[in-house]
């Protein structure tokens, strides 16, 4: 080991400790804008800071896996040792262990058991849905979906808005997301779907999905058998991890998306809206999804103003407050439903 390494080490450890502290501090529901700005300043000191921040954010998020002990404690083998303390947790644990049942247990115990449920979020609201097969959905603002599980298929109908899906693998039960514009089918993967009156946008962060104009669930095996013959079904288009597709009964566009960009686009799942230098017009368009109020940029020169900021999703007032701070913008409230942004003088 050379001298440089030895002298750098204490500073390196300090950065790691600070990065760990930031990971913990930022993991809360209502992160104030000024705390984020402080973090951004800390992070932007050097590439080393940025790298450590990323690493410890990820590691801290990984420790959420410890939650699995709750499921394990709820399993039969352990439950004989009942106690007051245990009983307090029991209902939650039973629910959790149900959700954690792997594909194999699920098949053996619940084959044929149906499940049907509808979900809706209001403007500015987000909801995390844990499905009985272990899959997870994060429903974004102003969105609606229905989940229906049958003996053969897992079907989600996204009727409005946007949702992110983490699909638990189940080889015998394909997972389909149906929208007015087309269907996305997966076996076990992670992707997000947004549907509007114009089109369906699909972003695949892990694995691979199949797009089709008609639902596939009756014969999802078509996807793979078609692939094995190396002549894909005419109507089925595959989208891989790292790709985004625009679809409306047929493919309009498929493009590769850089990993950073994917993370950025999926920031909303963490309840965050993150901007890395987008023009104010885009920022306002994004914020508008989360509020009933109309936000108007009164000053045309402001529209091109670049913004670097994190906003907490759903709370419009702190967002506007943060905008004021980070973009040097004057916020005027005309009435409850109308906000005007002008250049700060």
């Amino acid at each position: 080991m050379n001298n440089t390494n030895i002298t750098l080490l204490p500073r390196f450890q300090e950065i790691e400790r600070e990065a760990a502290l930031w990971a913990v501090r930022l993991d809360r529901e209502d992160v104030p804008a000024d705390l984020f700005l402080e973090f951004e300043q800390w992070r932007n000191q050097s590439a080393q800071h940025r790298e450590a921040a990323e690493r410890f954010k990820d590691f801290w998020a990984g420790t959420a896996d410890l939650d699995l002990f709750n499921d394990l404690a709820g399993t039969n083998a352990a439950s004989h040792e009942g106690s007051r303390r245990w009983r307090r947790f029991a209902p939650a644990m039973i629910a959790a262990s149900f959700a954690a049942c792997g594909a194999f247990v699920y098949m053996a115990l619940f084959a044929g058991a149906g499940f049907e449920q509808a979900y809706r979020t209001a403007v500015g609201e987000q909801q995390t849905i844990d499905l009985p097969d272990g899959s997870r959905i994060i429903l974004n603002t102003n969105s609606a979906l229905e989940a229906e599980f049958t003996a053969k298929a897992r079907i989600i109908r996204l009727t409005e808005g946007e949702a992110y899906f983490e699909v638990a693998k189940n080889p015998t039960k394909p997972f389909s997301v149906e929208t007015e514009k087309g269907t996305v089918t997966a076996v076990g993967t992670a992707f997000s779907v947004r549907v509007s009156s114009a089109e369906m946008n699909v972003l695949v962060s892990e694995g691979r999905v199949a797009l089709s104009s008609e639902p596939l669930y009756a014969g999802a095996s078509r996807i793979l058998s078609a692939q094995n013959q190396k002549q894909p079904h005419s109507d089925i288009v595959e989208v891989d991890a790292g790709q985004a597709a625009v679809y409306d009964r047929q493919v309009r566009e498929i493009k590769d998306v850089a990993e950073k960009e994917i993370e950025h686009q999926l920031d909303w799942q963490d309840g965050l809206l993150a901007f890395h230098g987008e023009p104010l017009s885009e920022v306002v368009a994004a914020i508008s999804h989360y509020t009933d109020a109309t936000i108007e940029i009164a000053d045309p020169s402001l529209a091109e103003h670049r913004v670097v900021a994190y906003y907490q999703v759903g709370k419009i007032e702190p967002m506007l407050e943060a905008l004021k701070l980070s973009a040097n913008v004057k916020v005027e409230r005309i009435d409850g439903r109308h906000v005007r942004l002008t250049q700060e003088d």
């Binding site: 790691e16 400790r17 502290l21 990820d58 590691f59």
Partner: peptide, 26 residues
């Protein structure tokens, strides 16, 4: 923060890659 720094060090000390225990790698 200290707890995760120590867990991180423990995992690294075992010759494992702590990144394998992060949310993304999983």
């Amino acid at each position: 923060a200290k707890a995760i720094v120590d867990c991180y060090a423990y995992i690294r000390g075992k010759g494992l890659d702590p990144a394998d225990f992060g949310a993304k790698k999983i």
